[in-house]
């Protein structure tokens, strides 16, 4: 009896759709349209994850304590006079001040590979070497040279410029890398990889926040891999990734509006349910028509 009622209801519903009764058709169409619009236009809060190998990376630091580095060894050079010991060892920390620009590069001078950290801000204190008892401020300019025979990982929070754009006298470049765009799932807080963009050698990459002219802070780390390259990984929520590529205008990397339709598991799932519902309805209608025809013949 229940089965019969269900069949009658489904038949009525399908017949209503087929009979062109406008209100129900419009409601059904609106439900599909609304789902599509919501899934395409809702905020995706994109997180950009950039990783790869480079010979140079420039950081404009924040006040985060991630920018305090245990370097253990390394020779320090500064142009301003200091009244304290500038030796780096396992007992002291190099503390970078807020808003300081520091460039990390690989060096290969006199066949002695090393890493070079250069920080600069004219007229300001740029860093300090801290021990338990003493703080030694360094003004204007700082160079730290670290032998390449040690494995070192430097975490940071900073506006990050990866690589250098090709120009006269530029010898340190981004070697390779990729940008993963992690989009927020529709209606959930989970993330999925929306798109992956490959970086070319010589690209200069940064994250942009709101306007193209404003750069976004990112968290990441640099790992000294071998004497020629630095491994880097940088992640941040941002509006786009800007790439300066030799021979072209600035490229802005953002996910396409359709990437959610093809990559978001939730949207793909909803789409599949709609498609299956239509398939079943169509199949049911055909089945019912065949049954009716058979009854008429009998």
């Amino acid at each position: 009896m229940i089965k019969l009622l269900r069949e009658v209801k489904i038949v009525n519903f399908v017949n209503l759709l087929r009979s062109g009764k406008k209100p129900l058709t419009i409601i059904f169409g609106l439900a599909i349209g609304l789902t599509a619009v919501l899934s395409l236009s809702s905020n995706r809060n994109n997180v950009y994850s950039i990783k790869g190998t480079t010979q140079t990376i420039t950081l404009s630091t924040s006040s985060n304590q991630l920018n305090n580095w245990f370097l253990e060894t390394g020779s320090v050079f500064t142009m301003s006079s200091v009244s304290c010991d500038l030796k780096l060892n396992e007992n002291n920390i190099l503390e970078l001040r807020n808003g300081i620009q520091i460039t990390i590069t690989t060096e290969n001078i006199s066949k002695k590979p090393s890493y070079l950290l250069v920080a600069r801000s004219d007229g300001k204190t740029i860093a300090s070497i801290n021990t338990d008892t003493e703080t030694c401020d360094i003004n204007d300019y700082l160079e730290v040279n670290i032998d390449a025979d040690q494995v070192l990982t430097l975490p940071f929070e900073a506006i990050t410029f990866i690589g250098e754009d090709v120009g006269a006298g530029v010898d340190k470049l981004l070697i390779d890398g990729s940008v993963n765009i992690l989009e927020k799932e529709f209606f959930t807080e989970k993330r999925y990889i929306g798109e992956t963009v490959k970086l070319n050698m010589g690209d200069r990459v940064r994250l942009a926040d709101n306007e193209a002219s404003k750069s976004a802070f990112a968290k990441g780390f640099v790992r000294f891999v071998d004497s020629n390259n630095l491994y880097f990984s940088v992640t941040s929520q941002a509006d786009s990734v800007l790439i300066e590529r030799f021979g072209s205008s600035t490229l802005s990397i953002t996910p396409s509006i359709w990437s959610r339709m093809t990559n978001d598991p939730v949207v793909v799932g909803i789409g599949s349910i709609f498609a299956l519902a239509f398939l079943f309805m169509e199949f049911f209608m055909m089945f019912m028509q065949i049954v009716k025809k058979n009854k008429v013949i009998k």
Binding site: T58, S60, Q101, D122, D165, V166, G167, S213, S215
Partner: peptide
């Protein structure tokens, strides 16, 4: 004079 590097945009001719 105080010197600083330009960090954004293309810097082909000067930086």
């Amino acid at each position: 004079p105080s010197c600083s590097r330009i960090e954004t945009g293309k810097r082909t001719a000067y930086d």
